[in-house]
Computed example of a mutant assay.
Amino acid sequence: MLRTLFAPRLVGLHLLVIGVLVAFFLLGRWQLGVFTDSGHPQATDDPAPVALTELSRPGERVTTDEVGRQVTATGTYDATAQLLVADRRPDVDAPGGRASAGAGFWLLTPLTLADGSIMPVVRGWVASPGDPAVDVPAGEVNVVGRLRPPDQSDAVQRGGVLPTGQVATVSTAELLNLWDGDLRDGYVVATRQTPALSATPVAVPAPSVGAPLTWRNLAYAAQWWIFAVFAVYMWFHFVRDAVRSTDPEPQPET
C-alpha cells in the first residue's frame, strides 16, 4: 500500500491537491476580507472650510450632511460661561466614562458671533481642571474646526453628581438651560485657532459614509472553501481506487 501511495503518479497528485487547497484557502480568505471590510465607513471628499453661518442657523438642527464639515467662525469667547465636559479623551470617537484610562476634560466655551448667536466650541482637552490651558483667550478669535452633532443628554451614565461647572455631554438641550442667548445646534471641535490653541486639540474625523456589506463576497469565500472540500473528496477517491487496483486478488480456497 505504501509503495502505491508514493508512486510517482500519486505523488504528483498529492502535490497538486496540496497546491489547490492552499490556493483555494487563500482565495477564500481574500474574499472574506473583502466582505468584512465592506461594512466600514468610507471617507468622502473633504471640502474646504466654509463659514459656520452657511451650515448652521439658530433654531435649526445639524443634519448628517453637515456633520464633520470644516467651518470657520469669528467671535469672542464668554469665559464666565465655560464648562468642562468630564471624563473625555482627546478624541471624539474614544470611549469616555470614569473607567476610561487617561480620561480628562474637554473645554467647552460659548463663542458669541457677530449676529449675537452662540456656538459651543470645544477648544481642546486637558488632563485636569487646574491646567493653565483652561484660561479663555480674551478678545476676538478666529476658529477653524469641524461641526459635530449634539450628544444625547443620556449618552453617558454616571453614578454621581458632577461638580459645578462640569457637564457629562455636549447637549444642545442642556446648554439651552445653562447659557443665555440664541444657541446654535451642535458644536465645533476646534482644530486650529488665532490666537493659537493652548490645550491639546481634540482629534475629530473627516466626513464619512457608511458602506453596505457585500454579501456576494461572503458567498465567493464559501464557494472557494467548498471547492477545497470537493478537491479533498476527489483526491480520496483517486487514491482509494489506485490502492484497490494494486491489491492482489484473493485466491480461491481449495
Rank of each mutant, 00 (worst) to 15 (best):
A127Y: 07
T64L: 00
T4H: 05
L32K: 04
T4M: 06
D78K: 11
N142T: 14
F230G: 10
Q223S: 10
A196P: 07
P252C: 15
D247C: 13
P149M: 13
G186I: 02
G33V: 04
G68S: 02
T76D: 07
V232I: 15
A190C: 03
Q152T: 09
L16G: 13
N217C: 04
G181R: 02
W235E: 03
M119D: 09
L162S: 11
Y220R: 01
P132W: 12
L197C: 08
D180P: 02
D93F: 00
R184M: 08
F230A: 15
G19L: 11
Q157M: 13
Q152M: 10
N177G: 14
T191K: 00
F105L: 08
H237C: 00
D180V: 07
P129M: 12
G19K: 09
R29W: 09
Q251N: 13
F105Y: 15
E253K: 11
L10A: 11
Q166E: 08
S245T: 11
L21R: 10
A242T: 09
L27N: 10
R123P: 10
Q70S: 13
F25C: 11
P248T: 10
A51P: 03
I118E: 03
L213W: 05
D65F: 05
R158M: 01
L10M: 15
D131N: 15
P250V: 14
A81P: 11
V136R: 14
T169I: 01
Q193Y: 05
L16W: 09
P250D: 15
V20S: 14
A190M: 01
R146I: 07
A211W: 02
Q152N: 14
G181A: 01
V143N: 01
G186E: 07
D91L: 04
D87G: 04
G139M: 12
V202S: 00
D241E: 13
W224C: 00
E140T: 15
F24S: 13
R29Y: 09
L218A: 15
G59V: 03
P95R: 07
P58D: 07
T76Y: 03
W225K: 10
V71S: 01
L111A: 10
H237Y: 13
P95E: 03
P195W: 00
D241S: 10
V170H: 00
L218W: 12
G139V: 13
P252S: 15
G33A: 12
V229L: 14
W225P: 06
P205G: 06
S208T: 01
F238S: 09
A219R: 08
G102D: 04
H237T: 14
V188S: 05
T246Y: 09
L5W: 07
V62N: 02
W215H: 02
V121W: 00
L26E: 12
D78W: 09
E60V: 02
I118K: 12
D93W: 05
L2K: 11
R3F: 09
L162P: 04
L27C: 10
L26D: 10
L84K: 07
L183S: 04
W215C: 06
V239D: 06
G145I: 06
P252R: 15
V209Y: 01
S245M: 04
